[in-house]
């Protein structure tokens, strides 16, 4: 399969009164056509900023996409697009859905108009055709009685229905890529599963490539093909689902997976958490950003940024443990901590 998106050395900063916040600090990954890539990490690790950059939603100022960053989609560096090209790109090549569907929909515009807007922004169709397409989209996302839904306003729909409408809006422009920024965080668990299933089903039908931003590992396991694990603006580890869940190499991935609650926890047993807090991105540490919280921290970790080591094709981790001289190179995290 060929790569649809290549993100190369992406660096994004925000200029604030306190100083320059380096949200994304040199991120490189690629997304294959038709797959689902999940970007996981805790709040403030730069995963949303990465997604927004691909969508061209970084406001400059206060944001700044650093010189040397590249996002190549279909052979074209999208970061060099003019405002006009961005307008044509957003919605038709790349769409985005957000965490809170209620605030992300215009409260005083009905569903029909909000979906039709995307269609008519990109395709020279008549109002009638656009309306037909809108109805089709609502059917596609599994809205019961789509005809009635067309005339409804966001506040008249339930949370799950609103997120379905959001997906219909995003897909109405027939984009190649759908970026989903924590699409299930604001929903309750049963609805979460429905929305994830819907996204899987739509991907199968339409062949859309999905970039999923989330901190919910359960969701990731369910839908993702490849996973990028981010921490304080850097990629810690990336690989396919099997490699990340069963053969993870980075202590952060290990800690993250261990922190996910599971049903085997006995009553009153405290949930596992990662001690400490992420580093300050105004003055990020010189070495590995996870060093201060890492169980396996060595001297070099605090002074020098780790190199990336490849274990299998596509599976890499940025950690000094795998340096031949560390003495840990054959560490097996799947047995650690038992």
């Amino acid at each position: 399969m060929k790569n649809l998106i290549d993100v190369k050395n992406l660096r994004v900063s925000y200029h604030t009164y306190a100083g320059e916040v380096q949200s994304v600090r040199g991120v490189t990954f690629s997304v294959q056509e038709g797959e689902t890539l999940a970007i996981v990490g805790e709040s403030g690790c730069g995963k949303s900023v990465t997604a927004k950059t691909i969508m061209g939603l970084i406001a400059t100022p206060p944001g700044e996409i650093k010189e040397g960053s590249e996002v190549v989609l279909d052979g074209k560096d999208i970061l060099k697009q003019t405002e006009k090209e961005w307008e044509a790109y957003r919605g038709a090549t790349c769409s985005m859905i957000f965490q809170d569907a209620l605030t992300s929909l215009n409260p005083t515009m009905n569903v029909e108009k909000q979906i039709m807007e995307n269609i008519r922004n990109h395709y020279p169709v008549s109002k009638e055709e656009a309306r037909k397409e809108t109805l089709h989209m609502l059917e596609l996302v599994g809205i019961p009685d789509p005809q009635a839904c067309m005339k409804k306003y966001p506040h008249q729909l339930s949370g799950g229905m609103r997120q379905r409408v959001m997906i219909a809006i995003a897909l109405a422009g027939k984009p190649k890529v759908l970026i989903a920024d924590e699409p299930t965080t604001a929903l309750d668990v049963t609805i979460q599963a429905q929305i994830i299933d819907l996204m899987k089903e739509l991907q199968k039908k339409l062949g859309t490539t999905i970039i999923l931003i989330t901190h919910d590992l359960g969701v990731v396991a369910n839908i993702a093909d490849h996973i990028v694990v981010m921490y304080s603006g850097k990629i810690m580890e990336k690989g396919d689902v099997r490699q990340i869940f069963y053969g993870h190499k980075h202590p952060y991935t290990w800690a993250l997976l261990k922190a996910a609650p599971n049903l085997e926890l006995s009553n009153k047993q405290p949930l596992i958490s990662i001690e400490g807090t992420p580093p300050d991105l105004i003055d990020p540490p010189k070495g590995c950003p996870f060093a201060a919280r890492c169980k396996y921290c060595m001297n070099i970790c605090t002074t020098e940024a780790p190199e990336e080591y490849e274990f299998e094709p596509g599976h890499t981790a940025a950690c000094w443990l795998y340096h031949p001289e560390s003495g840990y190179a054959d560490i097996d995290f799947s047995r650690e901590g038992e």
Binding site: L57, A88, Y89, F98, D100, S104, L105, E117, I169, G173
Partner: peptide
């Protein structure tokens, strides 16, 4: 947030201002 949604539909800035 709905302004961001409108932007991600590729809607023109002026149209966002006047229609949304």
């Amino acid at each position: 947030d709905y302004v961001v949604t409108a932007v991600s539909k590729g809607t023109n800035k002026n149209i966002i201002l006047f229609c949304h």
